[in-house]
Design a protein around this nucleic acid. Structure first.
Lengths: 258, 258
DNA sequence: ACGGCCGTTCAGAGGATTCTCAGAGGAATC
DNA sequence: GATTCCTCTGAGAATCCTCTGAACGGCCGT
């Protein structure tokens, strides 16, 4: 996803074609349902494409009133909710949502500087927020966290990712290789998480950029190479490498044997 | 839960896990039931979100009459009750509640300057109160205390929190590290309690603020950093540190080894 | 073999985040 | 009413993170 100078959003085809990976499912086995509420159609569209790609059922609403209307018959498990809506305020929407679907998770989208004021109290329960501009991986990760804690976790792996002897604990934000604790910066962590969520799948630099970096990032794909090199120094330094370059295409992470 | 290639699902029992780790359950194993009674919708919403997140079943009422009505069919174990209700006085509600559910615990919410002697009578009866504006952790702690004394403690944990050689006795309000008694101010204590209730889980500054500070606190997340630094001076000064900064995210408390 | 392209790495500027100190103001206590 | 203690603000310093630019080396075509 790229944010053009004119405010348009481009979505690369790649983003909507590959098969789903993650396994968050409702207790009854049906797919997770997410309602996206944002008055920017482009952003809402990109978000819903990514969530759908995650294997979830998605609906979109452009304002508070239609969000409530949709929620009533869609009964989502989670709602991605922009606090700046044209009609009803975000917190009001939250309250009315809760009145109808008490256990629903809400992920707020908010401007960076509007945080402290209106958002007070929302992280106190299970809910969470993400500040604009965000990266798609960040939104996904937060949403997965919310849903996992809401009882839609898949067996055993409660937010743990494993590739060979490399292990990531998302809650504790800990990464270990062969038991050795590895210290990562936020961007390194998010890049590695994206790789580990797609093991054995070659990821293009463009796609990595789209997912891991914020949508308003104007830089070049060179950063990806740079951060891959940082990661390699930290996790592939003294052991058979897990991160592999696929020349002219991108990068893969996979266990040493295969 | 495993998702087979043919679309089948296997569900194991342990997957249906509750989010946090409170360990308070009814004798018959069903979740604790709490009724929140407050005429401020925002406050009631935040309270119920927090309690629900704690794994309890929650109902909300906006005035005394509907509180009594709801209590009749909900049969709560505890009631969080604002003394200032639009219709019936809090004490009257208490009396009528007791008439129907004799063993119910009641936590009063009251203004700071409320009459002290009446409150004294309340605490004598086993109930408790919290003055507005309160922190959510305070409400939770008091509620846990009430419920524990009402016989809903799960075996083992009697209000003691342990992380490595750091021990907190919630009832005695005592903290020791390696046997050494540590003196904490009220805010320091509450911050540490929140950390110790969530060991190995990274807590964002926003979340800490929402939980540990009063809901009307208008300040910045900077206070959290400040109080973390106070805690470190008292707890982590001359021993392997337990409190760790996760840059760009928040803080974690965890035993020294891992 | 040569040259262009791609990927890797280094070095450093600039920015963001976090830590700590000092002190004002207020609450609690005696 | 005075004292002590606690909480919070503001500012500066220290630390850490991100990204740019450039140099280097290998891969692949011709």
């Amino acid at each position: 996803m790229r944010c053009g100078a004119d405010g348009t959003l481009e979505v690369t085809m790649e983003e909507i074609t590959a098969p789903p990976v993650t396994g968050l499912v409702r207790p009854d086995g049906t797919p997770v349902r997410v309602l996206v509420v944002d008055d920017e159609p482009d952003l809402a569209e990109v978000l819903s494409a990514v969530l759908r790609y995650e294997g979830w059922q998605v609906r979109v609403a452009g304002d508070g009133a239609s969000a409530l209307r949709t929620a009533r018959e869609f009964t989502p498990d989670a709602v991605v909710l922009d606090v700046m809506l044209p009609d009803i305020g975000g917190l009001e929407v939250l309250r009315r949502l809760r009145a109808e679907i008490p256990q629903v998770c809400v992920l707020f989208l908010t401007a960076r500087d509007a945080v402290e004021d209106r958002i007070a109290g929302i992280t106190a329960g299970g809910d969470d927020y993400v500040t604009k501009p965000f990266s798609l991986e960040e939104v996904l990760a937060r949403l997965r966290g919310l849903l996992r804690r809401a009882g839609m976790a898949r067996a055993g792996e409660g937010g743990r990712l494993v590739v060979g002897d490399l292990v990531m604990d998302e809650d504790a934000r800990e990464v270990t290789r062969a038991g050795q604790l590895i210290d990562l910066t936020p961007t390194e962590f998010e890049l590695l998480r994206f790789l580990m969520r797609n093991p054995r799948r070659v990821l293009s630099k463009a796609r990595i950029l789209d997912r891991v970096w914020s949508y308003d990032f104007g830089g070049q794909a060179h950063v990806v190479e740079l951060y891959i090199s940082y990661l390699r120094k930290k996790i592939d330094a003294e052991a058979p490498p897990l991160i592999h370059t696929v020349r002219g295409v991108g990068y893969v992470i996979k266990p040493a044997s295969g």
